[in-house]
């Protein structure tokens, strides 16, 4: 009994509560607009999570992750259009392609330190974008429209948003659980050791090249899965909506401002940014072109100068400050 009580600690109870609420949302909310917004939050939370495994835990900052997102979206779509292969198989294929490319790109480029790695990821994403923009079979500059099929799980197409909602919820929860598992495993400790001091990690016998590549591969494969889902949801993909610097940087921004290298951070980032972005775009985008993105840019500069360690970092700092202050208070009243 005591064990059960221990198991049902506050975070677990909170988790169950959140899961229950999320499962009930489509029963209460019928507005496609709101569902769409929540879906976007799930998608970005998932993608931020993917970025976070490499960038947050392992400390290898990628500004080209959108490339793997695009690879996932394009692989499943091309297989679907030209070979009539179910997007589910396409999703696996996309993840495999992304994984192989991540090994090919990651193994050599992860030897690079600091800005060089950043530039290598940037260059790779641009190469992917240029190829997609010019490759006829991938729709070139026209992009690809995914042909409509009757609503079914096999085709991963639905006329209502509710099935998409549940699917994305499960995918997002899966990404979340994976991050949690990684953080609490040996791998997570290795990743963090590499982030904190690579030479020291190497000296302690950690095969840094192997674990960095592993983090890259996991991260890229998750991005590709997100890409396939995005393609099936939006039903139209284009190089400029998938593999762009803006998209890559947005992931980085959300993960870091939420709190890189934490399980919750990327989700917090998505929760903060997606609705805010949507709201300011709806409010200002139509009236004054560019204003909402100006606000976004200004907000980034301000937030980074105030809270360089992200919101989760800021909160945990506030919490530890509060604790030390309370302890101090207790000591003072005690004496």
């Amino acid at each position: 009994m005591a064990r059960l009580v221990h198991f049902l600690s506050l975070p677990v109870l909170m988790g169950i509560l959140v899961a229950a609420i999320l499962l009930c949302v489509p029963l209460v909310v019928h507005s496609p607009y709101v569902l769409d917004m929540i879906l976007s939050v799930f998608l970005y939370a998932f993608l931020n999570n993917a970025w976070n495994i490499l960038g947050g835990y392992c400390g290898q900052v990628s500004v080209g992750h959108a490339a793997y997102f695009a690879i996932g979206a394009y692989t499943s779509t091309i297989l679907f259009i030209h070979y009539n292969i179910s997007p589910w198989i396409g999703m696996v294929a996309g993840a495999l392609v992304a994984g192989v490319l991540a090994v090919l790109m990651g193994y050599p480029s992860l030897k690079l330190k600091g800005p060089y790695f950043v530039f290598a990821t940037l260059g790779f994403a641009e190469i992917v974008r240029i190829i997609l923009t010019n490759w006829e079979k991938a729709g070139a500059a026209m992009g690809l429209l995914i042909p409509l099929r009757p609503s079914s799980l096999i085709h991963l197409q639905f006329s209502s948003k509710v099935p998409y909602y549940y699917l994305m919820l499960f995918i997002c929860a899966g990404g979340f659980a994976l991050t949690y598992l990684i953080e609490n495993s040996k791998w997570g400790s290795y990743f963090i050791a590499i982030r904190e001091d690579e030479d020291a990690a190497e000296a302690l016998g950690i095969n840094t090249a192997y674990y960095k590549t592993a983090a890259f591969v996991i991260s890229a494969m998750l991005m590709a899965i997100g890409g396939t889902f995005y393609a099936q949801y939006v039903l139209y993909i284009h190089p400029d909506t998938t593999s762009t610097l803006m998209m890559s940087c947005n992931l980085l921004v959300m993960a870091v401002i939420g709190g890189a290298g934490t399980v919750l951070g990327p989700t917090v980032g998505a929760l903060l940014f997606v609705p805010l972005g949507e709201y300011t775009r709806a409010l200002l985008g139509g009236r004054v072109q560019g204003l909402h993105l100006m606000i976004y840019g200004a907000a980034l500069m301000i937030v980074v100068t105030i809270a360089p360690e992200g919101v989760v970092g800021l909160l945990s700092r506030a919490k530890s400050d509060y604790r030390t202050r309370r302890k101090k208070g207790e000591q003072e009243t005690g004496t």
Partner: peptide, 18 residues
């Protein structure tokens, strides 16, 4: 940290472009 510096100049880029 490097990453915060990236975000700051990225923010500036978006701000000025828009």
């Amino acid at each position: 940290p490097t990453i915060s510096r990236l975000i700051a100049t990225f923010g500036l880029l978006i701000f000025l472009e828009n």
